[in-house]
């Protein structure tokens, strides 16, 4: 379970996350939506202890991320899939992560298998396609067999088969009782994957509802239309004609 309470992050230039409160429950896939610049990635960084909040807190299973011993065994995260050293191989990338949390060597083979990356284990990161980098990112997230998964835009760069694969994976993880938070701006994908939605705009909470109820409350429009209506006030960047 992830509990975000009155979370706020201010930078010199402005406020990225503004008094955000929500809970991500286990056992279902929770979609984390918002227009570009809404604060999704900042919120995820705050949850993972990468940035420090100006005020408020983010707890995982009742504890701040930073106080969890061997955190990869509790929380698996996929951030920027491209954050890899270009000359390090797939296996060595997973190996240093495993070592850092005292995870056994055998588990590396298992996550490579689970993500279809076994054949690419000896490839250097710079030779991987974006889709393969995403798969490696998912493999890294699964390494510690965590009860909480946080995935930032995991379907970016995946081919249709990959999209189906990650959708199935997330649903299976949730069905196993894990907490799954997935951010995306692909509405059609979220409509298929997420049972629950958290929508933010300009750092503020706009909606925290089951996907079905969200669509229904916007008079049966598609999720995409419902999202556009809800966030129309908080879109920061828009092509000239649309205003």
């Amino acid at each position: 379970m992830i509990e975000v309470s009155n979370l706020t992050k201010r930078y010199r230039g402005g406020t990225a996350v503004d008094d955000l409160t929500f809970t991500v429950e286990p056992g279902r896939v929770t979609g984390f939506l918002g227009p570009n610049g809404a604060g999704k990635s900042t919120t995820i960084r705050l949850i993972l202890g990468l940035d420090r909040p100006t005020s408020g807190s983010a707890m995982i299973g009742g504890r701040p991320y930073g106080s969890i011993e061997r955190p990869l065994t509790a929380v698996g995260a996929l951030l920027e899939a491209g954050d890899l050293h270009p000359t390090r191989t797939v296996r060595e990338h997973l190996r240093w992560l495993a070592r850092s949390n005292g995870i056994g060597e055998r588990r590396i083979g298992e996550v490579l298998e689970a993500t279809g990356m076994s054949g690419a284990a000896r490839k250097r990161a710079k030779t991987l396609s974006l889709g393969m980098k995403q798969r490696l990112g998912v493999a890294a997230a699964l390494l510690g067999d965590p009860g909480v998964l946080v995935l930032d835009e995991p379907v970016n760069g995946l081919d249709p088969e990959g999209v189906v694969w990650i959708r199935t994976l997330m649903k299976r993880m949730a069905a196993e009782g894990r907490t799954v938070l997935v951010s995306s701006h692909l509405m059609a994908e979220m409509a298929l994957t997420a049972e629950h939605l958290i929508v933010i705009g300009r750092g503020r909470l706009l909606a925290d509802v089951p996907t079905e109820a969200f669509v229904a409350s916007h008079s049966g429009a598609s999720l995409e239309e419902a999202f556009m209506r809800l966030t129309s006030e908080s879109v920061e960047f828009r092509a000239g004609g649309a205003r």
């Binding site: 960084r45 993972l48 990869l72 491209g82 890899l84 850092s100």
Partner: peptide
């Protein structure tokens, strides 16, 4: 320096938050 330029510092801090 390469840890920062490649962005692996984020994964490193997520793995070792201290």
């Amino acid at each position: 320096g390469s840890e920062y330029s490649t962005g692996t510092i984020k994964a490193a801090l997520a793995a070792v938050p201290s």
